[in-house]
Amino acid sequence: MADKIATREAYGNALAEFGDKYPNLVVFDADLSAATKTGVFKKKFPDRHFNCGIAEGNMASVAAGASTAGLIPFFSTFAMFAAGRAFEQVRNSIAYPHLNVKIGATHAGISVGEDGATHQCCEDIATMRSIPGMVILNPADAAEARLAVEAAINYEGPVYLRFGRLALPVIFDENYKFEIGRGVVLAEGTDVSIIATGLMVHEALAAREILAGEGISAEIINIHTIKPLDTELVIASASKCGAVVTAEEHNIIGGLGSAVCETLAGAVPTPVLRVGVEDTFGRSGKVPALMEMYGLTAANIVAKAKAAIALKK
């Protein structure tokens, strides 16, 4: 297998890379720069990295203020503290005035592993999605994470970027195109549409192989932008396949699955089964064991795909 790299690692590398090209790019962190990987940027641009200490609410509002004076601030902490602790500052200081602040939230989801439930944020997409005008990017691999960072820099307004702790294989090559709001068909199919985001894209691709072996044709869609959702693509794929499975490392309430259901219910009512954390908290453990325990696996996607197909009229 090729070398694995976590999206948070790619995030830190991308900040350092793009720091040359975008001199107004500055980074704030809340005492987690070794874990969020903004430390990579700090090493290269020590004068453009500001530690805010363990005070995430202040950090979010500081970034908002800095953006009004022409800087492009990224602020980083774990997803739990960016989208949870600092929710209100993100809403009122950043999103309401639609300021040009980028939120680099790492350690999202169950794959945080050993730290357990207090640090495994499976609610961040839900809170961020409920804020008007917020863009939510959830890259599936290191290549996509790099492209997402540059797209966020070039977008005028608030962007929430969701990165993971777990090292993952790289699936996209240099020809891969990334555009905010545009989903990507990774494989065409006709029996069921599997719409995945983040690390679950890897599981969706594995599920496709298993399904193909059983004579089932699955379409695989990568939704790197959860908001604004590529509704056109979602509707087209659902219309074609007649059954949908969503897959995300997030609570099944409020995330990609919800967004897809909301879209299809008003356009082309289609059976949708959701793979995700089923409205429960995480726990400590090795990541593979946890992924199994919470059903974040190719096998679960396969089972849900068959069940969704059975629901077709």
Partner: peptide, 14 residues
């Protein structure tokens, strides 16, 4: 509580 933090961000940016 949010405004004074934003003011800090402006001052830092300056």
């Amino acid at each position: 509580g949010l405004g004074i933090s934003a003011a800090c961000g402006m001052a830092l940016a300056a």
